[in-house]
Amino acid sequence: MAIQRLAHFTVRTTALRDTVRFYTEVLGLREGWRPPFDFPGAWLYCGGDTPEHAAVHLIVGEAGDHGGAAVDHVAFNASDLSGVRSRLRAHGLIYREQVVPQLGLHQLFCKDPCGVTIELTFAGVDDA
């Protein structure tokens, strides 16, 4: 067996609407089709519109329900650094930035409404 790519990550939230708004309005994912589970949640899409493009699954519940563990951060490749900065400021979000030495990568870190750190990585960005 060989890992091919990240399928999705799941976040438990007690504030579903706020969490959906963060991932859609701030990060630019799209809310889409979700199977008819017997518990509330949302699937958020990146790229195409088929279930394999559902990058983030949201489930209503407390962190730690069903044995869930902490996640340090989740990283996305991104573009339009200045536009992302503007959206974060418009939503009143605190963020930090750093440059990865020798790789030409600019990283921006913020937190979602559940406290999960989100890393956005911009390739070939020179400004800090």
Rank of each mutant, 00 (worst) to 15 (best):
H8R: 02
V11D: 01
R12F: 15
T13Y: 01
T13D: 02
T13F: 04
A15F: 01
R17E: 15
D18G: 00
T19L: 04
F22Q: 03
Y23D: 04
Y23I: 09
T24L: 01
E25F: 00
V26K: 03
R30V: 10
R30D: 07
R34G: 12
P36L: 14
F37G: 05
F37N: 10
G41Y: 01
G41T: 08
W43S: 03
W43I: 11
Y45K: 03
Y45L: 03
Y45D: 08
P51G: 06
P51H: 07
A55N: 02
V56P: 00
V56F: 03
H57D: 02
I59T: 13
E62G: 01
E62R: 14
A63M: 12
H66Q: 10
H66W: 09
V71M: 15
V71I: 15
D72I: 07
D72C: 05
H73T: 09
A75G: 13
F76S: 02
N77W: 15
L81E: 11
S82H: 12
G83N: 10
V84D: 08
R87I: 12
R89G: 03
R89P: 00
A90N: 09
H91E: 11
H91P: 00
H91I: 11
G92H: 07
I94N: 08
Y95Q: 02
R96Y: 05
R96S: 13
Q98A: 15
V100R: 05
P101K: 12
P101L: 10
L103E: 14
G104E: 04
G104C: 07
L105E: 12
L105M: 14
H106G: 02
Q107E: 11
L108A: 02
F109L: 11
D112K: 06
P113Y: 09
P113K: 09
I118D: 02
I118Q: 02
E119T: 02
L120I: 08
L120K: 00
T121P: 01
F122C: 07
A123V: 10
A123L: 12
G124I: 08
G124Q: 11
G124L: 06
V125T: 14
D126M: 11
D126Y: 01
D127Q: 13
